[in-house]
């Protein structure tokens, strides 16, 4: 693989194409070890009120901000206004000008409200944010987000935390055909092969949280995901054989023993 095969967006380069999260881990220590095992360079964080209980540990004690790029998300926001406010507060913390923009349309599926998402994307892009919107696998929507200035588009593979993998690879392939910004599958990855499949399709990266944090052994799964993303990317660059209905023998037909 070329040394220069890096993930690029908004003028930044990343060697790892796996983005991980911070939620749902059994504890901060296992989160830290999982991040390390994943090889990820970007970590998503939620934006919330400080816990006033002084005895609480702080998440940021377990993330080396010199090693990881923080990607604040607007999880829990259901309107463009909420997401914009959250993004602005996140930027005020002063540790990142990136935002993983989530505007949720439905509590059970956690599918995005694309109308509000597009509104928020336009405002935040104008405010100078690097916007990475979590969307669905609709190529029309992906184009609109890109045209609105999103630094990447992040179609979901399946509902957040569902572990169903890439439910519509065909739509994602269509998005890949026309996108001029990175396409990063975000949500739904359940196990290593799901991540590999996303990369084999040609995606520029995969973002996951539950798939790792919720695994029986998050650290081992983080390592598996690291390999899966690498393998999928290599396979994509290597150029797979076509799918055929019938066999094509690999061994020569001459010189057969009688």
């Amino acid at each position: 693989m070329e040394k220069s095969d890096v993930l690029t967006f908004a003028g930044r380069q990343f060697r790892s194409r796996l983005i991980v999260g911070t939620g749902k881990y059994p504890d901060y220590r296992s989160m830290q070890r999982a991040h390390d095992a994943s090889g990820a360079e970007i970590v998503t964080v939620a934006v919330r009120r400080v816990n006033l209980d002084r005895n609480q540990e702080s998440l940021l004690d377990y993330i080396d901000t010199k090693r990881y790029t923080l990607l604040p998300n607007t999880a829990g926001c259901y309107t463009a206004e909420e997401a914009i406010k959250t993004a602005i507060l996140a930027r005020e913390v002063g540790l990142s000008d990136l935002v993983k923009l989530e505007v949720i349309g439905d509590q059970r599926t956690l599918f995005p409200d694309n109308e509000e998402l597009l509104k928020a994307t336009k405002v935040l892009v104008k405010e100078g944010f690097v916007v990475l919107p979590y969307t669905n696998d609709d190529p029309v929507m992906a184009k609109k987000l890109e045209d609105a200035g999103a630094a990447a588009v992040m179609p979901l593979g399946a509902p957040i935390g569902s572990g169903l993998g890439i439910r519509n690879p065909y739509n994602i392939r269509i998005i890949l055909e026309t996108a001029r910004v990175p396409v990063i599958v975000d949500a739904g990855v359940g196990t290593a092969s799901d991540a590999a499949i996303a990369m084999e399709l040609g995606c520029d990266g995969v973002l996951m949280n539950t798939g790792i944090a919720g695994a029986k052994d998050p650290v081992a799964m983080a390592e598996a995901m690291r390999h899966a993303v690498l393998a999928g990317r290599l396979a994509y660059l290597a150029g797979r054989i076509p799918r055929k209905l019938y066999a094509t023998a690999s061994s020569p037909l001459e010189g057969m023993i009688e």
Binding site: T22, G23, V45, R48, S58, L60, A75, L110, N209
Partner: peptide, 12 residues
């Protein structure tokens, strides 16, 4: 006052 920071988490 709202004092905000980064916490563990994602989709909620």
């Amino acid at each position: 006052l709202e004092i905000i920071t980064f916490m563990a988490g994602g989709a909620e």
